[in-house]
Amino acid sequence: MSFNYNANPVANIKEIPHHVLIVYDSKFCSGSLIGSKTVVTAASCFLKRKGQQIVVKVGANTMTGNGQVITVIELKIHEYFKHLSNSDNDIALLMLKSHVVFGSNVIKTVNVESDVALRVGAQVIVSGWGSTDLPIKYLNLLLRSEMLVINRRLCKKHYGKLITPSNFCVKYNLEHRLSDNGGGAIFEDMLVGILSSGTSKQSYKYAILTNVSYFHRWITLNTNRFLTKYCRYKNDTPTEESSEYKD
């Protein structure tokens, strides 16, 4: 297996317009826009949250740059997060208070279908943010990292019981580490994974991704629950708390 990667990990939001910054208190992580009011991310993003308000920013090239800032009105963490291991069922959904405004730098991604497995050696593009654990030139910038899918045996050799049916492993160039988790893994313009763990300075050159295909039904069911609760479709009777959903 060999990498086919850009030597410069700094990305432009127009290259990965689904990428979202998620912030609460002084903590941050990444996510992927999958609808005009819906973001998917890692449940582990919120391990240190103690009820603080969550906001997201879309359409930004840097953590401090201009973008659409929107409040989160509901967080849905998978019911069985950490069931078999700390990385098991590491997925969460966010419902936004208002719709994003789609444009060249804000575009939702498409989830891979259920029962789809990537071949060993397939290359995915994972995105995230640069922080103080990386060289100063990457601080607060949007980054991309090319990663290769590896076989589960090698994966379990390094991570043991952390590897469950809900996730898979990828190999990456240590020079292209990411500072946070929750960012999407894209293969052929589809969201196939969510960065769960493994790109910290202390980790191996292998990362764990949540398998989006494994959660296709869960994502669909809970997205529909959000829409039923908070949104209305055209020709429906409007209510004070609802808004029209834009797919």
Rank of each mutant, 00 (worst) to 15 (best):
T239H: 06
S30I: 02
D133T: 14
C45V: 03
T71F: 01
P17V: 02
M147A: 15
L139H: 13
L221I: 12
W129Y: 12
F28K: 10
K234F: 11
R177K: 09
Q202F: 12
I163L: 01
V100A: 13
V120D: 12
A43P: 03
N211C: 04
L178T: 08
H18F: 15
A92Q: 04
S243Y: 11
L143I: 11
E241D: 14
T210C: 07
L96P: 13
L139M: 14
Y138S: 04
V126G: 01
D25G: 11
Q52P: 00
Y206Q: 09
K201W: 01
L33A: 05
S32P: 01
A92L: 05
I22A: 03
K76T: 10
V58P: 09
N111M: 11
V106C: 03
Y24M: 05
L148F: 02
N8K: 03
T237R: 13
P165S: 02
N66T: 12
Y24H: 09
L221F: 14
V10Q: 09
F187N: 10
L209A: 01
V69W: 09
Y80E: 15
T199K: 08
Q68E: 15
G182C: 06
K234Q: 11
K48N: 13
S200W: 00
V100G: 12
I22V: 15
I125L: 14
S242C: 11
R232F: 13
H99R: 14
L142T: 04
L191G: 03
M63W: 06
Q68M: 13
M95F: 15
A117T: 13
F168K: 02
N89T: 09
V56Y: 08
V69L: 11
M63H: 03
M63S: 10
R152P: 00
D189I: 00
I194W: 01
A60V: 05
M1Y: 07
F3Y: 13
K157L: 15
C169I: 04
N105L: 00
N6V: 11
Y230C: 02
S87K: 04
T210K: 00
